[in-house]
């Protein structure tokens, strides 16, 4: 599919709060615990299965950090670890984070361009819960959240896009300004501040009040598709006008990823970006799911759980080489 050449993943997140508790329960352990058990019980009573309850306090820290690296829980949840928990459905990549900034953050992640599927999974969980519990809701302001920037639908729809050529054309600043005009925001998926390591960007809605969930999903999808078309055009142009240089870059990056015996994370991202570009343009024979899974596999905590005995840089080189040798 054309979309997969650019779109790495889609995610939906719904913020919900219980009517009868203050938003911040990080210093109220009894209410926080009630929040966890109420949610878990509501899910069970509704007959929803496949969710595992994980408490962050006293949990295996490396395993939890690996969940953050996979995008299944947020880094913020680790910050309220004493009272936080997550109900996780690994098979569908659905998680219900409990006691983060809001009481509940229902999140679903899918690969490629698939916001609707992710949304349907979140809504199914929400429907099941709302049969047993009451969420804070106001006819004018919608679902009430700890921070008014999320009130209304409480929904964040985001796409992760791989845009190496738009980045090189120095167009991402302008793209961000244009996106802001329709209530969207563009940020680097990895890295601090203006950095976008691996040329990966997160496109998501900033505005949550006054638009329906469908409008939000359509806007994010439409802008995502436009960025995709721009990037694909730049790729075609590069193939036509500058093929030798493009191939040189891609094959060199492949050589480094396959030959290196030690690799820092900072070195990995740009090489990964070039090789993914090569795979997406059919210059290299790697599957895109393989390339995308490398992103979380090459993260520090993930590496540690698979290569416990090796130092990080060595483990990363091993992991990347093994994956690329397996091909698909």
């Amino acid at each position: 599919m054309k979309e997969n050449r650019i779109m790495v993943s889609s995610a939906i997140r719904l913020a919900r709060n219980y009517e009868d508790f203050p938003f911040d329960l990080s210093t109220s352990p009894i209410q926080a615990e009630e929040c966890v058990s109420r949610t878990a019980n509501a899910l069970t009573l509704s007959g929803v299965t496949g969710f595992e309850l994980i408490r962050l306090d006293g949990g295996d820290e490396r395993a939890l950090k690996a969940l953050v690296e996979e995008g299944l829980i947020s880094g913020d949840l680790m910050r309220t670890a004493e009272t936080a928990a997550v109900l996780l459905n690994r098979a569908d990549s659905v998680s219900i984070m409990i006691n983060e900034e809001d009481h509940l953050r229902i999140q679903a992640v899918t690969s490629g361009l698939n916001l609707q599927t992710a949304a349907d999974r979140c809504f199914a969980v929400e429907d099941a819960l709302s049969r047993q519990v009451r969420f804070a809701y106001d006819e004018e302001l919608g679902y009430l959240t700890s921070c008014p920037t999320n009130t209304g639908t409480g929904m964040r729809a985001s796409l992760v896009l791989h845009l190496p050529l738009l980045t090189r054309a120095k167009q991402m600043g302008t793209v961000g300004q244009i996106a802001a005009k329709v209530g969207l925001t563009v940020r680097g998926e990895y890295g601090e501040g203006t950095e976008a390591l691996g040329d990966l960007y997160d496109l998501s809605n900033q505005v949550t009040l006054g638009r329906t969930e469908q409008e939000i999903i359509s806007t994010v999808t439409a802008v995502g598709r436009q960025l995709m078309d721009m990037e694909l055009t730049l790729r075609e142009n590069a193939l036509r006008d500058d093929r030798l240089r493009l191939e040189d870059e891609i094959y060199r990056a492949q050589g480094l990823l396959k030959g290196a015996r030690l690799m820092k994370l900072a070195e990995f991202y740009p090489l990964w970006s070039s090789v993914r570009l090569g795979a997406a343009m059919n210059l290299l024979d790697y599957s895109l799911p393989l390339m995308d899974s490398l992103l979380s596999m090459a993260q520090p905590n993930h590496l540690q759980s698979f290569y416990a005995t090796l130092p990080e840089e060595q483990a990363r080189a091993e992991c990347v080489r093994t994956a690329l040798d397996s091909g698909r």
Binding site: F123, E126, D138, E139, E140, L141, G142, Y143, G152, T153, M155, G183, V207, T208, L209, G210, R211, T212, E213, Q214, E215
Partner: peptide
């Protein structure tokens, strides 16, 4: 948000 009347679910 540019609007103050909730729409949606």
């Amino acid at each position: 948000h540019g609007r103050v009347q909730h729409a949606g679910r």
